[in-house]
Amino acid sequence: MRQFLARRAVASLVSLAFLVIAVFFLSRLTGDPTDLYLPVDASLEAREQFRQLHGLNDPLIVQFWHYLKDLAVLDFGESIRRARPALDVVLEAFQWTLALALSTMALVTVSAIVMGALAAFHVGGVFDRIATFFSLIGASAPDFWIAIVAIVVFSVQLGWLPTSGTGTPLHWVLPIAVLFIRPFGLILQVVRGSMITALGSAYVKTARAKGVAARPIIFVHALRNAMLPVITVIGDQLAGMLNGVVIVETVFGFPGIGKLMIDSILQRDFSVILASIIVTAMAIFIMNLLIDMAYAVLDPRIRY
């Protein structure tokens, strides 16, 4: 187990290193921030001073070296735009995204599992139809469209919910609802398929022969066996959300990491770009570890 963790940590650090190198140099291709931050008629001296201040005069490789040295002591640099430590800016945005992603995925997981299990138990029944309906919407309706329609209907016309921001719990309802649909439809289908296999298995036959009632057969005997592929998809979806849900964040004016990343690229705010990538990569690494643990907890045959 410990060996497994160590191997995974090393592998993740290696990929992180490649990522940092690639992003560092690629982001410089977007251009010189000086042009963006100083007025068009700024004097050459002012420009020179700005470059000096942000270390943009050094050769790229020297800049990279400085960046690595700072990174070694967990200094992620300053945001040019906000004149604050980049890490603070990133963590602030990330916590919003994390909260949004976790609450959405928690709701998705619980409802998709219950619904999918019931759909599998009566293929072609009521739950199965509802399941198919949601999967269809999730797969076919683009989320920016759903988001806009939801704002028009619930915020503008009915006036039940705020259009954007994060002030009250009510502000969370629409973003979560919009984000919910696609992973719900997807995970529902995975649960359904996996449960149909599990319910047709020999050990379910044994349970029926033992006289186990329908509900424990579904939720105790079959579900735990059916969870492995489901966990994989949940992890995949959650990783996607941790990277930021740019469209939903933008439409609802939600100050998350996705929006921050796009903004900082447009603003050539290099330290923020790098810091957000490192933070989300770490989060995804930790989440993947948790998922591997979940495998081992669910299935005693899996040991690392």
Partner: peptide, 10 residues
């Protein structure tokens, strides 16, 4: 087949 007829996760 007793292996497949016993639930593997309990």
């Amino acid at each position: 087949d007793p292996l497949s007829h016993l639930n593997p996760v309990y």
